[in-house]
Structure formats: C-alpha cells, structure tokens
C-alpha cells in the first residue's frame, strides 16, 4: 500500500463497494503510522457514505472531509473546499472516495490540475456480482466512460466482488477471473483482491500478496 501513489482516487460502478474499500484502506494506512485524509466526494449516494463514519475514523486519527454543509439529511452536491488540503499538503496520504458511475466522477474535474501523471493512482473498483459489470465489455465501457469524465487515467483494478456478509471464496475468484480478463484487455494491473477477513484462509495461493482483507464498517449488525 505504501507503494501506491500519495493521491489515491477510488472510482467504479455505482454500488461496487468503493466506500467500504476506501474506509478500510484509510484505516490500514493509518495503522501503518501514516497521516491520512479521506475525502468523501460522493454526490450521488445519500445513504451509506463514508462521512457517516467520520467519528470512528477521526478517533483513529484519520481526517475525514465530507460535505461543505453539515447534516445527515443534506441532499446537496456541496463538497467542502477542504478537499484541497490533502491534495496540496504533501504530508498527507490522500484517498478520494468518489461517487459511482461517470455522473459521480464529475466532481473530480475540479481537481484536475492535481492529477499529474505518475503522482496519483486511480483505482477502478470491480464487483462482478453487480448486474452491470459482469462481462469484460461492460467493465471496459465503465472504465472508459469514467476516465473521460474524470479527466484522469485508471492505474489499477480492485477486485471487490462480494455479496456482503454472505460472500464466498467463489465470489472472490469469479471476480478475480473477470479482473484478469480486463487486465489482459486493458493492460491495467490488478492491485488488490478484496475479501472479508474471515475468508482469507479459503483463498488459493495464486492471489499472492494482493489479498486485501476488510471489515464491514458500513453495515449495521442487523444488515445482511
């Protein structure tokens, strides 16, 4: 993870699991002793946004940047000007948790001047269990469309294929196989294979050290 570029942009299809990945990524970086800022740029979703977990993340020493106007019921595309802090202040490890689909990626346009080649990573989160991202063609179309709107290039694929708490090792492997095909087609590397902590031992060795175990911070105990 410390080999990833200082600015990490997390994009993907709507509902692919970008926020859960971003939150886990921020926690892991923070546990490595880094100074981390997580910017929630989601103007598409109004529920299940990373800013809802600001309190527990801030307790871990992570700076969380959400809307410019506070309020859990805020239905405005108002992003805080503070997003510029971790982009400009190089002492920060920055994670930008972006809204889903090309529509969600539109917020990135404003930060275009900070996305210089070789100075950022943009990870495409792939969930092969979402109906719209089940084939190589579909995934490639999303990558191209989001890149166009974001005016930045995807630099890696995150296989985040899951069915929430009922995810099996087969789900992860099906996603891995799709990610491999996408990788062959596009030349993009598979950066991480995300799985529940409890599944790590069930995954084959072929995934190597790319396995990225996560906790489900965004799901309440009564949720599936």
């Amino acid at each position: 993870m410390d080999k990833d570029k200082r600015i990490r942009i997390i994009i993907g299809h709507y509902g692919s699991g970008k926020t859960e990945f971003s939150v886990n990524y921020a926690v892991k970086l923070s546990q490595m002793g880094k100074k981390v800022a997580l910017a929630d740029l989601d103007v598409v979703n109004l529920y299940f946004r990373s800013r809802e977990k600001a309190e527990i993340l801030e307790d871990m020493g992570i700076k969380v940047i959400g809307g410019a106007i506070k309020g859990s019921g805020m239905d405005l595309p108002a992003i805080s000007g503070e997003v510029l802090t971790p982009l400009q202040d190089k002492s920060y490890q920055a994670i930008l948790d972006v809204g889903g689909n090309p529509q969600g990626a539109r917020t990135l346009g404003r930060y275009h001047s900070y996305f210089k080649d070789g100075e950022y990573d943009m990870f495409f989160v792939l969930n092969a269990n979402r109906p719209e991202t089940q084939t190589v063609d579909q995934v490639e179309e999303y990558i191209v469309k989001i890149q166009d709107v974001a005016r930045a290039k995807v630099t890696g694929i995150i296989n985040n294929t899951h069915l929430l708490k009922s995810t099996s090792a087969e789900d992860v492997m099906r996603g891995y196989n799709l990610a491999k095909e996408v990788s062959t087609r596009t030349g993009l590397p598979i950066k991480y294979n995300v799985c529940l902590e409890t599944l790590v031992d069930e995954l084959p060795e072929e995934l190597g050290d790319n396995v990225f175990p996560i906790k489900l911070y965004m799901r309440e105990e009564w949720m599936l």
């Binding site: 509902g15 979703n45 109004l46 529920y47 299940f48 269990n129 069915l163 929430l164 009922s166 949720m223 599936l224």
Partner: peptide, 10 residues
C-alpha cells in the same frame, strides 16, 4: 422505507 430502497443486498 429509505433504508430498503437504498440498501444493497443479494
């Protein structure tokens, strides 16, 4: 309710 509408599930 909004929770059912917004929630992802298999």
């Amino acid at each position: 309710d909004g929770m059912i509408g917004q929630m992802m599930e298999p």
